[in-house]
Design a binder for these strands. Structure first.
Length: 416
DNA sequence: GCTATACTAAACAGAG
DNA sequence: TCTCTGTTTAGTATAG
């Protein structure tokens, strides 16, 4: 069984038929949804695929979805877009507005939402432009979408925090340490568990939340993985120690792309990275949420934070001497320059990084323009990276399921 | 009855 | 000091 991904939140929910206003057309459009399920397919493929994709076997939740994806798509790569979900639901729901969210929940303002807290948090985070939110923004989002909580006892906030802390689907990403504004950390969805959450959402009476899924910013960005990011980070740390200029992320990406072009198809590289990401998690990891496994969970959870947080860490490893503002050299800015004020711009399109940049550019220091430009560049890189992480999670799941399916079919053919 | 999952409450510490 | 955030523990409810 998976982590706390909304197993039976609506069991006690007071809004049973709460309308399937799901934006299925959005799901249809969004392409690389790995959670598509063909209910008609027999279960068992995972067993067969064990040797081929070991890391999948540690995800017990996948046993429920071994019928995943006979139909799926990499929307951005020109493959046919077929959404079994769409078929299953059998609905032709009108496309949603720009917000991508129909607000079905508001129909039952006084009723308890049929989602578990983990799903609510997931939706909130996914709905944010940067796929990262501080707790306060998560509260706000939930309050906005589910007015029920406005009148509910404040204990729900405690539950939200409790969930964030305990549920390893969520990763804490430290904000910069400049401590100008904003308490606490940002919370992101661990890409590794994104499919789990999507799966859980799909199991909800109405899976409107699936419409939150957003494809990566660009096809190219699919080549960025947490491992890649952290490797760039490490390289730069070494370079910094050596007194060299840090390698900008974009440069590293270019090098990587040229490498993948030379030695294989880029998509292959992506999949390899995806695999490495997956294998970074202990196969024996306990995914339960029970008290007996809390400690193990916490270990696993905390260890998995590093991959994602490396994006954020990239702000921190540059010594002040290398700072752009001081010598005009390129590179990442130091942590003191990256403070975020979420109160002023709670994750607008500018996002975390750009907000940080705005802060830095207002201090009237030399190299202002250059810094601003660099900040924008970094902002774009981070956005790409964020999109890539999500994309990789989907690709990995798709691949695993495809392998499983192919193996099963092979075996069936051999038996014949 | 047992187990797993989810929710709630409470206490506590640290930071702003 | 107060509030917010994050962590931890304990207890309860529900479903399988």
């Amino acid at each position: 069984m998976g982590p706390v991904i909304g197993m039976t939140p609506e069991k006690r929910a007071e809004t049973p038929g709460a309308e399937k206003v799901a934006g299925l057309s959005q799901i249809y459009k969004m392409g690389s949804l790995p959670e598509a399920v063909d209910a008609a397919r027999p279960k068992a493929t995972l067993v067969d695929s064990e040797s081929a994709d070991d890391e999948l076997t540690n995800l017990n939740w996948l046993h429920e979805s071994t019928n995943l994806l006979t139909n799926f798509s990499f929307g951005s790569e020109g493959l046919p877009i077929v959404s079994p979900l769409y078929d299953i639901e059998g609905d032709d729901v009108p496309s949603l507005g720009p917000s991508c969210y129909p607000n079905p929940e508001k129909k039952s303002a006084t009723s308890k939402p049929p989602y578990s807290f983990s799903l609510l948090i997931y939706m909130a985070i996914e709905h944010s432009p940067n796929k990262c939110l501080p707790v306060k923004e998560i509260y706000s989002w939930i309050l906005d979408r589910f007015p029920y909580f406005a009148t509910a006892p404040t204990g729900w906030k405690n539950s939200v925090r409790h969930n964030l802390s305990l549920n390893k689907c969520f990763q804490k990403v430290e904000r910069s340490h400049g401590k100008v504004n904003g308490k606490g950390s940002l919370w992101c969805v661990d890409p590794e568990y994104k499919p789990n959450l999507m799966q859980a959402l799909k199991k909800q009476p109405f899976s409107s939340a699936l419409t939150f899924y957003t494809p990566p910013a660009s096809p190219q960005s699919g080549s960025l993985s947490p491992h890649f990011l952290s490797s760039v980070l490490k390289q730069n740390q070494v370079r910094t120690l050596k007194g060299e200029k840090p390698l900008p992320l974009k440069t590293a990406m270019q090098k990587k792309r040229s490498y993948s072009n030379a030695f294989g198809h880029p998509s292959t590289m992506r999949l390899q990275e995806s695999h490495s990401l997956a294998t970074s998690i202990d196969p024996k990891e306990d995914h339960n949420y029970s008290a007996s496994s809390m400690a193990a969970q916490r270990c696993a959870s905390r260890s998995s934070v590093s991959s994602l947080s490396s994006v954020d860490e990239s702000y921190e490893f540059i010594p002040k001497s290398n700072h752009v503002g001081s010598d005009g050299s390129e590179g990442f800015h130091s942590e003191e320059d990256t403070d975020v004020d979420y109160e002023d711009d709670p994750l607008g399109d500018s996002g975390y990084a750009s907000q940080a940049c705005a802060d830095t550019s207002d201090k009237g220091q030399p190299g202002k323009k250059m810094r601003k430009q660099l900040c924008q560049e970094i902002d774009e890189e981070l956005k790409e990276a964020a999109g890539s992480l999500l994309h990789l999670a989907g690709i990995r799941t798709c691949l695993g399921s495809l392998i499983s399916t192919a193996k099963t079919q092979n075996q069936k053919q051999r038996r014949k």
